[in-house]
């Protein structure tokens, strides 16, 4: 069972205080978007063996959503950061690159 640090209230807590929300940094495609864009937004998800960005909500704590950069294999947590961003912060990207040189980067 994971432990995560909520960047919004600073609490480090076990997974049962959180609610997992799937892949982070999705771009919404609404009315007027092409079928392929809408399909990708709704249904296509990454399932990487390794570095992954996820949405989590501190549901039993401060109630805030945040994002986590995590290794799906080793379960290492590279960092957590507030949800109000379209891409991971530079320092987290740098940390991942130093720990996983083979990682292809955020795309």
């Amino acid at each position: 069972m994971l432990i995560l640090t909520c960047p919004c209230c600073g609490v480090t807590a076990e997974e049962t205080e959180f609610h997992a929300g799937g892949e982070a940094h999705l771009k919404r495609f609404g009315p007027g978007s092409a079928d392929a864009e809408y399909e990708a937004y709704m249904f296509n998800r990454k399932n990487p063996r390794g570095v992954h960005f996820e949405r989590w909500r501190h549901v039993y704590g401060c109630g805030k959503w945040f994002l986590a950069a995590r290794c799906t294999m080793a379960l290492e947590v590279f960092g957590t950061y507030p949800a109000q961003t379209h891409e991971p912060p530079a320092e987290i990207v740098a940390k991942i690159k130093s720990k996983r040189p083979e990682w292809e980067g955020f795309a």
Partner: peptide, 13 residues
């Protein structure tokens, strides 16, 4: 309520 907070925090912040 969670649905509302999700959209407000993560999409239309």
């Amino acid at each position: 309520h969670a649905w509302m907070e999700d959209w407000l925090q993560c999409e239309w912040w």
